[in-house]
Write a protein that binds this DNA or RNA. Sequence first.
DNA 1: AACGTTTGTTTATTTATTAAACATAATAGC
DNA 2: GCTATTATGTTTAATAAATAAACAAACGTT
Lengths: 391, 391
Amino acid sequence: MKTGDQELVKKINKSIVLQTIQASSPISRAQISKESGLNKATVSGLVSELMEEDFVLEIGTGLSSGGRKPVMLYFNQTAGYAIGIDLGVNYILAVLTDLQGQVVEKIEEPLEETFPGVVLPMLKNIINTLMETQPASSYGVVGIGVGVPGITDNNGSILFAPNLNWEQVNVKQDLEQYFELPVVIENEAKAGAHGENIHGAGRKSSDFVYISLGIGIGTGIIIDDKLYKGARGMSGEMGHISIDANGKKCRCGNKGCWELYSSESTLLEQAAKLPSMEGKELSLNQLIQEAEAGNGEVLSLLSRIGEYVGIGLTNVVNTFNPEQIIIGNRLSKIQRWLENPIHHVLEQRLLPPFYEGLEVSFSQFGIESCALGSAAFSVEAFFSENKVTVT
Amino acid sequence: MKTGDQELVKKINKSIVLQTIQASSPISRAQISKESGLNKATVSGLVSELMEEDFVLEIGTGLSSGGRKPVMLYFNQTAGYAIGIDLGVNYILAVLTDLQGQVVEKIEEPLEETFPGVVLPMLKNIINTLMETQPASSYGVVGIGVGVPGITDNNGSILFAPNLNWEQVNVKQDLEQYFELPVVIENEAKAGAHGENIHGAGRKSSDFVYISLGIGIGTGIIIDDKLYKGARGMSGEMGHISIDANGKKCRCGNKGCWELYSSESTLLEQAAKLPSMEGKELSLNQLIQEAEAGNGEVLSLLSRIGEYVGIGLTNVVNTFNPEQIIIGNRLSKIQRWLENPIHHVLEQRLLPPFYEGLEVSFSQFGIESCALGSAAFSVEAFFSENKVTVT
DNA sequence: AACGTTTGTTTATTTATTAAACATAATAGC
DNA sequence: GCTATTATGTTTAATAAATAAACAAACGTT
């Protein structure tokens, strides 16, 4: 049981000060005091600690508003760095970000084989390369976050990743031993949701659901600006909600799962059957080209997929009553063709009070949300160890 | 922005002390100190405040374990009372509970008409009767909680209650003016979920979903021991998750909603079509009698309903990965016949890690969860005003 | 140059927790 | 029955953090 003491008070207030600086930098001590409600003296004390820790810098003076000039404070976002990885089914996307989540370096490599024995050494290589490119800083790389396309438990093990054909692989332990840095493993959709919440389209919302439309469908649930993980860390498998109780069998055991009707796999499968696609390459990019060229068959296929996305989203909204839905991952590339059918279905199927307050957005950074979210996990773990909490 | 100060620390610790007393009464000051990690002196101080406020009583001494005898402390659960209402579709169930949630008085009346003009005066009457029966106490009735079968917003308005045929009725304002007491209005399933979390089958779980199987299906989502309300207070309409995307239309606008396959209405509707039920009364109790008498048609109907409950629960579990599912409201009466088909479907359709950690329970107090949960809302509101928080 | 204003620091006060000392009251061993 | 030991609960002094108030510094205005 966590009791209350002065240390807790200080941690809360120090976090408030740092967050205020992050949000409104450059900002003076006086203004922090006004915005936060903390006493000027308190702010001064906490700021000087933050400066000793190199998280905050004084840079020059601001404009006077009829009195002494304020000393402006900045969040020192390059006091350290984090590495975020999106371990995709057929690619690895790795980023080096600063403490604010700004991408400093980026590596993307295709993944030909998915055996752990191939992937893990490759992963270590990529991380090593990023480590070497990091600029000099007080804290260096503070942690590594990895988003994976599968079900993870709370210990950083990948229990089941059907698309990689992995079972029971403990990536966390492996990487932590090798790099001697804290490692966070999280499901790809959960990491993406977090990325959007911290840096992306979900910054303004505190309750939203991120839908990762990729090879399969995953969801990340943000409640009160926190990721909801579920009892054993496996929440959000809404791709396996049955939208046709007696539909075709899914490999998860259920029947008529949502992702059988509106994922990238399904899209490509169904495209293969179109006469107009005969002999052509079957890829998302090819389909986009066809759609742009006005291929009617492809257009109506995309529209049908969009409708099924909408049907699944109806379920999401009735469940969570979120302020916002954010659609990310590969199929966010075909936003143009999905948007209308989605809205049409939602308007038709939702009760007005559910539809009215709802915003449906697409990811701002397309495929990068996952890597950015993973890096953000590491940054937060680092700060919370340092007796500060940062959103 | 809520900053940290000593008041916050005290509130946290005072809550810990009170909660410890509630959970383990009778208990000594020394033992509270050991269990909570708070210093003996701190505990002594906080206890004496709680005694001044009449929330805690000293009652005699306990057994010595080789030293001075401990003074035993009790939570004074009759320092005040709360009223909890379950406004059902065809009944009103009202309880007067003490601060611990013990039912002191109970009134149940059938509801023949559902016009607000009829229901509200009746409600006031019932509440008045309960008020008169309350024993003498320090704080008297501290609040009124009402669970309603419909969608509420965060202001205590009932936006939409199809089964009562209500729209935009502000019960909270009405009752608060009349009784001059704080009133909490909440959806029936959310109140039920909270009731189970505080007093019932969900006491040990911090993440579970309560399924209210009544005329329709509602759900209450408990995350981290807190009710999840959604952006506008309308979360948990999982009865309107489509389990057959192209199924028959529901009045909510969606198609193939779960509650069209496994609610009490559906059960009765389908029972009406059974040859063996011709000329018999169509009610849940009658069906229970038939089942007990071994009516094969009814038994297979119940089994089919159970399977569809299971199909919906699969969706719930894939979404939330809860530790527990609690089934409550009217259909919890037919637990005997639902249990097997539900488990069968879950085992078949869920991935093993989802099924393994999962407990499926039925409500301990059947229909009373909602009224108890509503009363509990009021008790908590009262305590949080008194600078103490109680779960 | 005098005045008022804003910024940031210093000082004294307040409040809550805690460790340590203490008083109290019981059991256990001899 | 006496003493040693042990557990309970209170008192006292120390500590830590926030805050109000006073103050010093720096600036613009008149």
